[in-house]
Design a protein around this nucleic acid. Structure first.
Lengths: 213, 213
DNA sequence: AACGCATGATCGAGTTCCGATCCATCGAAA
DNA sequence: TTTCGATGGATCGGAACTCGATCATGCGTT
């Protein structure tokens, strides 16, 4: 299964969305609601986000918000899901055949792509994946970062013809975990991303993937 | 400045606490409130924690909760702060002179200590540091992990007589960031900590501190 | 040692605010 | 014209938070 095609299907069909949009205008509404949520989160953080703020910002009413989402947390989860999808498609671009010559180079491309998401995708620094939401029980057996790592590994196998193995999957998962942790910290107190920390991330990435990809 | 003595001073004096406890019973109350919050979080997650639950659990009334905390989120932040303090004192033990022969060994001790916190400190897996709470503006210029790294470095200098330098501080910060990220992931879906992931964390730690401490 | 009293601490009903529902109305498709 | 998806906003229920009454503590006074 390709990852690009997930973009419009993962959200729909999940428990996060109450009613599938049928008419054309309503898919735009749904996007507007998520955009509004992202903007609010960027300004005051997801803890303080209220459903009324989302409605206002999107030029919609409270009722409309609840037509699409079962509850406040579902809005956050839906945004997290959309963020994950956008990351996935950004990574799919990055891992396209013509882009990088070696797996190691591609992994550095992933680092850049993740940093781009933090820089340009509203709300991404706050809720890049649903994992931060502390829900019981966890929404899936796999962590969100684990899912991304799986996707990257699949792309590696397809692109570079490396052999599938538990070691390979572990190495990519480790590398991605690292990337996520360091980039998150680089952007934690600096909206443009702390340069020194990003450089450090790159260095550490080299140390970790050395000979393993 | 020693780290143990922070235990009762970091919380007091911060904006997280409305009224400093002065009588003996009230410091106990404050502790009871935080204990109650930790227990609730362990059971249902901090998203679903209500101030009424905290009051009930602590055998106090709503009014008492609000005597000490300005709002619901401050309760969570205060717990996060106490968690950081407990981590600090656990690390101070770990870095005691007789414990480890080399900085590298000590760093592995730090890994073990962090894992212990995840295992045994109620609420720790959910809100180990204030960073996870996504509030604006950030409470301090330094990230919580950065503060811990600083503390570890100071202890290294005192214990092993290594020379202070930007490189040393950077190396420790990197190593700690790594530890935090991997241990968190090891405990994300497993209350006892995924053994394989903890082993992987140890391996990666070696790769990263190699020759730098 | 006993007392008095200033002030810290507690309580919980009352108020405000927000998450969530309901339903009357609008407008697109057929 | 009819049907049904989509919308707005009044309304409800419950959680966050306030505030004045009341109780407890410990310190200065005698």
């Amino acid at each position: 299964m390709s990852n690009l095609e997930l973009s419009s299907s993962l959200l729909a069909g999940s428990a996060l969305i109450r009613n599938e949009p049928v008419q054309a205008r309503s898919t735009a509404r749904l996007a507007a609601l998520l955009d509004a949520a992202a903007a609010v989160i960027d300004e005051i953080g997801y803890e303080r986000l209220t459903t009324a703020m989302v409605a206002d910002r999107a030029g919609a009413s409270i009722g409309t918000v609840y037509r699409y989402f079962p509850d406040r947390i579902a809005v956050l989860q839906a945004l997290a899901t959309r963020n994950s999808e956008r990351l996935a498609s950004r990574l799919a671009e990055e891992l396209a055949p013509e882009r990088h010559a070696t797996p190691a180079a591609a992994m550095h491309g992933v680092l850049t792509a993740v940093a781009d998401m933090f820089r340009h995708e509203p709300g991404y620094p706050s809720i890049r994946v649903g994992d931060v939401l502390d829900l019981r029980p966890p929404v899936s057996a796999e962590t969100a970062n684990g899912a991304v790592a799986t996707m990257i590994t699949d792309a590696f196998i397809a692109r570079f013809g490396v052999r599938d193995s538990a070691e390979l999957r572990g190495a990519v998962a480790t590398a991605y975990e690292l990337i996520d942790a360091f980039v998150a910290r680089a952007f934690a107190r600096n909206r443009d991303g702390d340069k020194a920390l990003l450089a450090e991330a790159s260095r550490v990435l080299d140390a970790v993937i050395d000979g393993k990809l």
